[in-house]
């Protein structure tokens, strides 16, 4: 809000500061309309190529004494395999979900980090369609393994825990159906999208605001502009933390949902 006030003050002198809007996130590079090749699409393809190159290059000549790259890859893989998959899903059948979880983690992490890495600087996940696609994979997987394990009827029966008084069962059933089929995928996609979107908008606001105040403002506004740049620097560090955290949380929640479908009681 204070930036709005500053902007309106400055606009009295001409020009005026335009706060970044949601329109900043739609950037078609080639064509237009639904088939446009947009900036996030290019970033996503770039990230896939980069991940494939890095993973192949660091594991093709795997050695007992690892190189630096191999150490990074093994660290990330070990973290997902032991820290997420085995701890959450359990040691019995976690191994077949490790590829899915590792792919999700690396893809989201690299795409999130692209939000602050200079030549790219666009978090792919701030376009809602891409988190939705990732969530759809998780959604299909955890329902599929749940239904395959016990059958369709029993799957719905298992939604309600045993030993509840009869009158409360329909109520709990409705609540659990809403949780399983609506709330879970919705929050999974929106959490990733919302964090990346809000973070990028915040950085845009502080950097463009700082730039405007330094170039167009008086001496007081120039000092405030320097403060705005300092704030943008601090927020960039914070943003890197959030980017790691969101990749981890997405993987953790996917593992939790899969574990819920595999266990006997929900």
């Amino acid at each position: 809000m204070s930036l709005n006030v500053l902007g309106s003050l400055a606009s009295a002198e001409g020009g005026g500061f335009e706060t970044p809007t949601t329109a900043e996130f739609y950037q078609p590079l080639l064509f237009d309309g639904p088939l446009a090749i947009t900036r996030p699409a290019v970033v996503l393809m770039l990230s896939v190529g980069l991940i494939a190159w890095f993973l192949i290059a660091t594991t093709r000549r795997a050695a007992i004494v690892p190189s630096k790259g191999q150490w990074v890859t093994e660290g990330a893989y070990g973290f997902i395999r032991n820290g997420v998959a085995r701890d959450i899903i359990g040691s019995k059948d976690f191994l077949r979900f490790v590829p899915l979880l590792f792919t999700m983690f690396v893809l989201i992490l690299v795409n999130n980090l692209f939000g602050v890495i200079p030549p790219v600087q666009f978090p792919t996940m701030s376009r809602i369609g891409i988190p939705i696609a990732l969530t759809l994979v998780v959604y299909v997987v955890y329902h599929y393994i749940g239904i395959k394990r016990v059958g369709l009827g029993a799957y719905f029966k298992h939604l309600v825990p045993d030993g509840l008084p009869g009158w409360i069962v329909p109520l709990i059933f409705v609540l659990e159906v809403i949780t399983f089929f609506i709330t879970r995928p919705l929050t999974l996609a929106l959490r990733l999208f919302g964090n990346m979107f809000a973070g990028h908008l915040l950085l845009l606001l502080f950097i463009t605001g700082g730039e405007y105040m330094i170039i167009h403002g008086g001496i007081g506004l120039k000092i405030a502009g320097a403060g705005s740049f300092a704030m943008a620097f601090v927020l960039t560090i914070f943003e890197i933390l959030i980017e790691f955290l969101q990749a981890y949380i997405f993987t953790l929640l996917a593992a939790t949902y899969i574990a819920g479908s595999l266990s006997d009681e929900h």
């Binding site: 820290g83 701890d87 929050t187 929106l190 959490r191 919302g194 955290l245 981890y248 953790l252």
Partner: peptide, 23 residues
């Protein structure tokens, strides 16, 4: 180690409400 994943899970679930508000 055990508490960390539980805490982050709880954090993610609580945060969902704020994200709904933002969207």
């Amino acid at each position: 180690g055990m508490l960390q994943s539980i805490a982050i899970l709880g954090f993610a679930l609580a945060e969902a409400l704020a994200i709904f508000g933002l969207v």
